[in-house]
C-alpha cells in the first residue's frame, strides 16, 4: 500500500494555475526528493498535502485514508470530515525552510507541547521522548535554551525533533537547508540521512543535488506546476534523462 497517493492534483491561486495535474506515489520507507526551479510549485504541493492550502482538483490519500477527492457531483473537491483530516494530519510531519520554532518556548517545550496538548501525553512521557530525540539530534545540552540562542542549523534540528515527536509516518521537508549558511547545511543533511537509514518515509524538496542523488530512492523533477520527469536518481542524474532535466541540472551546477 502506498503511504501517499497524489492523483491529478491541481491548485489554482485565482487565475494562476500553480499545480497542473500532479500524480505520484510514495511507498513505505521510500525517500523521495523533489527538485526544480523556484516558482515551480514545490512548496505549494507540500502545503496542499499538509492541509495548509486547499487543493482545487484531484485526489490525495495518506496511509490509505482519503483526504480529498474530486467532487462526484461537479467541479472542485470534497475534503474528508474534520476528524479524518485530523487523523491524516497526525500521520504526516512538516519541516519548514524557516524552522518556525515557537520563540517563547524552550527547546524542550517546543518538542513536548504538541504531544502533550494534541496526543494528551503526560509531561514525563513527552519529555522522555523529547530528550531521546534531542540526543539523536546531538542537542541534549540545549534542552533548556531558547530558539533565539541557537544557530540556524541547531534550530532546524530542533524543528525536525519537534515534527518527529508526534511519530509521523511520513516526514516532509521544504528546502530544509535553504535558510542556512552553507557550512551549516551539512549537519541537517546528516540528520536526514540518518532518518533515511532508520527507514523513515520522507519527501524532501531540495536544491542539494548531490544529496538528492545520494539519499533519494526516487527523484521528481518539477517545473511550471507539472512533473517533468520522475525516476531513480541514476536515471535523472544520468545520461538518459530528458533534455529538460539535463538543462536544469546543468544550469544548476553552473550556479
Amino acid at each position: 500500500m502506498a503511504m501517499l497517493e497524489v492523483k491529478n492534483l491541481r491548485k489554482c491561486f485565482g487565475d494562476l494555475e500553480v499545480l497542473k495535474d500532479i500524480s505520484f506515489n510514495v511507498e513505505k520507507g521510500e525517500v523521495v526528493a523533489i527538485i526544480g526551479p523556484s516558482g515551480s510549485g514545490k512548496s505549494t504541493l507540500l502545503r496542499c498535502i499538509n492541509q495548509l492550502e486547499k487543493a482545487s482538483d484531484g485526489k490525495i490519500s495518506v496511509c490509505g485514508m482519503d483526504m480529498l477527492e474530486d467532487n462526484p457531483k461537479g467541479s472542485g473537491v470534497v475534503y474528508a470530515d474534520a476528524r479524518l483530516l485530523r487523523d491524516i494530519r497526525l500521520k504526516i510531519g512538516l519541516v519548514f525552510q524557516n524552522f518556525n520554532l515557537f520563540p517563547h518556548f524552550s527547546v524542550l517545550r517546543n518538542i513536548t507541547e504538541a504531544p502533550m496538548i494534541v496526543l494528551k501525553k503526560s509531561k514525563e512521557e513527552a519529555e522522555k521522548t523529547a530528550i531521546e530525540l534531542l540526543k539523536k539530534m546531538g542537542l541534549e545540552a540545549k534542552a533548556d535554551s531558547y530558539p533565539c540562542e541557537l544557530s540556524g542549523g541547531q534550530q532546524q534540528r530542533v524543528s525536525i525533533a519537534r515534527a518527529l515527536a508526534l511519530s509521523p509516518e511520513i516526514l516532509f521537508f521544504d528546502e530544509p537547508t535553504s535558510a542556512l549558511d552553507p557550512e551549516l547545511t551539512g549537519e541537517i543533511l546528516k540528520v536526514i540521512r540518518k532518518l533515511a537509514d532508520d527507514g523513515m518515509t520522507m519527501v524532501i524538496v531540495t536544491h542539494e543535488m548531490a544529496f538528492a542523488r545520494d539519499v533519494a530512492d526516487k527523484v521528481i523533477f518539477m517545473e511550471n506546476g507539472v512533473i517533468v520527469e520522475e525516476g531513480a536518481p541514476e536515471q535523472l542524474f544520468g545520461n538518459d534523462a530528458t533534455e529538460r532535466t539535463k538543462q536544469f541540472l546543468q544550469r544548476f551546477s553552473q550556479g
Binding site: 494530519r89 519548514f96 518556525n100 515557537f102 494534541v118
Partner: peptide
C-alpha cells in the same frame, strides 16, 4: 509561519491562539 507550524503539529485553532 507560527500558525502554520502549529497547524502542521495538529494543534486546534483554539490551542494555537492560546498557547502559541
Amino acid at each position: 509561519g507560527q500558525y502554520e507550524a502549529a497547524a502542521a503539529l495538529s494543534m486546534t485553532r483554539t490551542q494555537t491562539f492560546f498557547k502559541i
